[in-house]
Design a protein around this nucleic acid. Structure first.
Lengths: 245, 245
DNA sequence: CGCGCGATAATGTATAGATATTATTTGGCT
DNA sequence: AGCCAAATAATATCTATACATTATCGCGCG
């Protein structure tokens, strides 16, 4: 019987070196703290130039699987579970992936006067904002209520954008380059607004995602999304696996 | 007045090239879809070798800020907010960071017979497990209840470990190399167990984090953590910024 | 013994070239 | 026009070498 399994070995040399070193670490053959071969040794073992070895090892170091130090050499890093890749839900794609029909329904759309938020010690002036409250539906039943502020000083085009059929989230993603986003995730009880909009009982547990997006120092938008607790959850996956570099 | 601001410009050439290209993208000067200079052009502009330019650009491509194609050239990628770095709470550090005293109290500790979980289509046999239910406290008041299974086949040492004073989480991190972890985050209502252990009313919204950790194909441990909704939340930050490569 | 200082071993960066790969363009043939 | 093949332009990879940087080692001196 022929072996029809796909050849998963990377085609390029540096990727192959990386994969093999990675495999030895993940299999436990090389344990955390163990010293691994020097670039010169690997260069001899694979019969390639040091630059190629370096590329492979630098990539492993970037993912945090190994730790490299001049003169001291390279060691297998101690596993730390401090960060994970969180998949931000693309609401529409998520809903459609379950085979449900996506719906969007704006409830409020108005200009709000300049306001201040307090971040730590200092207040931050944010200027006038466009405020849109909307509900996202799966097969007609509400799943998410979103309160979004878009700050006009930072995103002038938002003053005239049409959010009657397109939600502000995708519009922003397509129009505005951003640099940093921060999310806060919490469990809250449905308040009066959420109770009505999501058609749940008062006090029902809901997942709250507060997202704030910046470009440089400038706040572009703040979104407050309340998901029906029974309808949505987030998943995050972390491993040294994802190909970086 | 002297400028005492730290020189944030990267010292190395490829990092400088990357930073400058990145800055032009983030400032909006080069917009999504725009074609950017070829490696040969950048090489001339910076008076360096093509390898150096390549390193800078490959790194930007790795973070997803640009998209590169042979022959077609390099273009600014459309911003996608699909992933973020989620800081996994180190409960103890978190509690102590707020100036509270950390406490740990195991409630149950027993061996459980082999069990099966169903993942998608196929059932997965997991074998015998050690089960530890514990409460984590801040200044004496409960903040988190954790149900943890550790599978003996995968982690034999767990059979004899002492979890009376050290929680299983840190013990595992220190003893067992893992490769992949997956988290599911949801909002749930406090059930009977949580109500008692967390000293909250029945039905109170709580943040649920289910964590499953593998080494290769082998499941090492499954943890189900229920946080008091009013006491804890998670934050995730994402930007193209973090230095990779 | 302990301290400092130079040698050394490892990684980090950069260069100039070569070859490989791949998508596009172009030109020729029907 | 339409289609296939060759030229081409861009990135991708690799080599061999050089020099820079830095933590550690080991030796000599007080």
């Amino acid at each position: 019987m022929h072996d029809h399994a796909p050849d998963t070995r990377p085609a390029t040399l540096h990727a192959r070196i990386r994969a093999e070193v990675e495999a030895r670490i993940l299999s436990g053959e090389w344990k955390p703290g163990d010293r691994l071969p020097t670039e010169t040794e690997l260069m001899a073992r694979y019969g390639c130039s040091r630059m190629t070895v370096n590329k492979a090892m630098a990539s492993l170091a970037a993912t945090g699987l190994i730790s490299r130090n001049r003169r001291a050499g390279t060691v297998v890093a101690r596993p730390r579970m401090h960060a994970a890749v969180l998949t931000i839900p693309d609401i529409r794609a998520d809903i459609e992936a379950r085979g449900a029909a996506y719906g969007y329904c704006p409830l409020l759309d108005e200009m709000r006067p300049p306001c201040c938020v307090h971040l730590g010690a200092e207040g931050h002036h944010l200027g006038q904002s466009r405020f849109v409250r909307s509900v996202h539906l799966a097969d007609g039943s509400p799943v998410l209520i979103e309160d979004r502020h878009i700050f006009i000083d930072a995103v002038p085009a938002a003053a005239t954008a049409d959010f009657r059929s397109e939600p502000p989230g995708p519009w922003l993603l397509g129009h505005v380059p951003w640099t940093v986003a921060e999310h806060r995730i919490a469990a809250i009880a449905a308040d009066a607004v959420a109770t009505r909009a999501l058609e749940v009982d008062f006090g029902t547990p809901c997942l709250l995602v507060e997202r704030r997006t910046w470009r440089g120092e400038e706040t572009l938008t703040i979104a407050r999304q309340v998901f029906r607790g029974d309808a949505f959850d987030l998943t995050a996956r972390f491993g040294p696996k994802p190909d970086i570099g």
